[in-house]
Design a protein around this nucleic acid. Structure first.
Length: 494
RNA sequence: GGUGACGUGACCGAGUGGCUAGGUAGAGGUCUGCAAAACCUCCUACGGCGGUUCGAAUCCGCCCGUCACCUCCA
């Protein structure tokens, strides 16, 4: 049984084999850090977090790169060509990198809360200008790019003579020409409307600018990922991912850049795309304004949501659907997810109680238990189908509950089978799916409750109880203080 | 116009040519001082119309509806 993944490049599920086993290089297109992250931005990181966790579980040596785009990306064709970062910076009257840093910090906080392990390398586009310029030079040396007024464009028709521009998104160059919106502004420098910028000349008001062989400017919109992927994962990485909306033009251009440079590869063997999150069936997006910010939804009601949802509930909610299916957000769906998540967590606590009573050889209950255990990996191996895997976990949990309450059933499973089942449940839930318990009980309130029992016992002169409570709290580093005003507590100073 | 998805029970959401998805909600039961949890049982679907097949929700065709990308977007 091995992992298969759907490869957008071939439009098929393929068995995963690393280019250079046991090393695996994974690249995820990260955020553009000029605004707060919303729920839609969280899906890719969560999916790729599970993917890299699972690859590690399979004993691969994973290098997981998730970049930060802090330069480039024009707001629209209509504006002055000003950078999104700069626009945000100008509005707040601060240094552009301050804007980037602020949102990088926020992003990391949110991803950590969602249980996403930090990537092994988190390169920033602004820190790799030299590498990007080098890629541009290589493409020019190969005759696939041209310079106009300090800007450099990728020559798509020329490239298409020997390669297929559109191989990832399955478009023909003719179709694209036919579908091109007529005479967009800012296109005049391009020889073909299909061409895209590798390097842009900086207009005078542009603050973010770097020297280059073509004058002061800034890198094109797709360049950083090609340059940084190559730097850290080599000419051909194993897996390159992002949202479905990045497939074209972003990833298509990346492939063209890699093929057109000295890499001469498709940049990655597997191209993996997660589907979108929708609200009432429509994609959640910045431009449509129908988004819910992660920071807001963790805290309380926001936008279409009548309640707040904790990061782990959100993570579980996302994983309960397959990553290539769209997921619709609603209170009903999130509330159902919340209950399901808590059920799964309660199961984690149940594991301690499952102590085998039988011993030795195979017993009558083993086959069933082993099947339930194996099912969990069937889902994961089939294109990282976490939805199926979670369903299998619930089936195993039902079994656990029966075993925990029915001694006769527990006597019918061997220690080996039970241990394997328990370990699998714990490993898959916590280590692979990354779902951990979020303590909800309020410690201070529990303490107050205990103190009220203490006071009660004291009033009844039940000193054995009083001593018991005092000792128990002492064990937690808490001392009780009987003052004239009543019972109080403090942290032990010992 | 081009490219690509999708339409599953009250809700969310998997999957497969014949064999229980799962979660949530609802009904009944076991247990229980009450309750909760847990377990058992029930409710039970695959947009419409044709076709292929011994058999299709699963394959094919048409129709209806929804969405995404083609412009920054995870």
């Amino acid at each position: 049984m091995s992992l298969s993944l759907y490869n957008t490049l071939t439009r098929k599920k393929e068995e995963f084999q690393p280019v250079h086993p046991p090393q695996v290089g994974v690249y995820l297109c990260g955020p553009t850090v000029y605004s707060e992250a919303h729920l839609g931005n969280a899906r890719g990181p969560v999916v790729f977090d599970v993917l890299t966790r699972y690859l590690r579980h399979l004993n691969y040596q994973v290098r997981y790169v998730r970049n930060v785009t802090d330069v480039g990306h024009l707001e629209s064709d209509a504006d002055t060509g000003e950078d999104k970062m700069e626009k945000a910076a100008r509005a707040a009257r601060i240094e552009p990198m301050q804007v980037a840093q602020h949102f990088v910090n926020r992003y990391r906080q949110h991803m950590l809360a969602l249980g996403c392990l930090p990537p092994d390398i988190e390169p920033q586009a602004s820190g790799h200008i030299i590498e990007q310029i080098q890629v541009v030079e290589e493409i020019m040396a190969n005759g696939l790019a041209y310079e106009v007024n300090g800007s450099v464009y990728f020559d798509v028709p020329k490239y298409n003579e020997n390669q297929r521009y559109g191989k990832l998104s399955n478009r023909s160059i003719e179709d694209q020409l036919a579908g091109t919106r007529a005479n967009l502004e800012g296109q005049s420098e391009k020889r073909s409307p299909l061409d895209f910028a590798l390097w842009k000349n900086a207009s005078p008001e542009h603050i973010m600018r770097w020297p280059s062989p073509w004058g002061e400017g800034f890198p094109g919109w797709h360049l950083e990922c090609s340059a940084m992927s190559r730097k850290y994962l080599g000419n051909l990485s194993d897996i390159h991912g992002g949202g479905l909306d990045l497939m074209f033009p972003h990833h298509e251009c990346e492939i063209a850049q890699s093929q057109g440079s000295h890499s001469h590869t498709d940049e990655a063997r597997f191209w993996v795309h997660n589907n979108m999150i929708t609200v009432n069936g429509t994609k959640m997006s910045k431009s449509l304004g129908n988004f819910v910010l992660l920071g807001d939804m963790f805290k309380g009601p926001t936008g279409p949501l009548a309640s707040g949802y904790s990061p782990m509930v959100v993570r579980f909610f996302l994983l309960q659907a397959h990553y290539r299916s769209p997921v619709d957000v609603s209170d009903d769906a999130l509330q159902a997810a919340r209950k399901g998540y808590r059920k799964l967590m309660n199961g984690l606590r149940l594991l301690e109680k499952l102590v085998p009573t039988a011993d030795g050889a195979e017993l009558s209950g083993d086959a069933d238990l082993r099947k339930l255990t194996a099912d969990i990996f069937t889902g994961l191996n089939d294109d990282l189908n976490t939805a199926r895997s979670i369903a299998s976990l619930f089936n195993l949990l039902r079994k656990f509950n029966t075993l925990a309450t029915t001694p006769a059933a527990l006597a019918e499973v061997s220690a080996a089978a039970l241990t394997e089942a328990v370990d699998t449940y714990r490993t898959v839930v916590t280590t692979i799916l990354g779902l951990v318990d979020e303590p909800r009980a309020n410690a201070e309130q529990l303490l107050e409750l205990t103190l009220s029992f203490y006071a009660e016992a004291k009033a009844e002169k039940a000193y054995d109880k009083v001593d018991l409570i005092r000792a128990a709290l002492k064990g937690q580093g808490i001392v009780i203080k009987d003052t004239k005003a009543g019972v109080e507590w403090a942290y032990s100073e010992e």
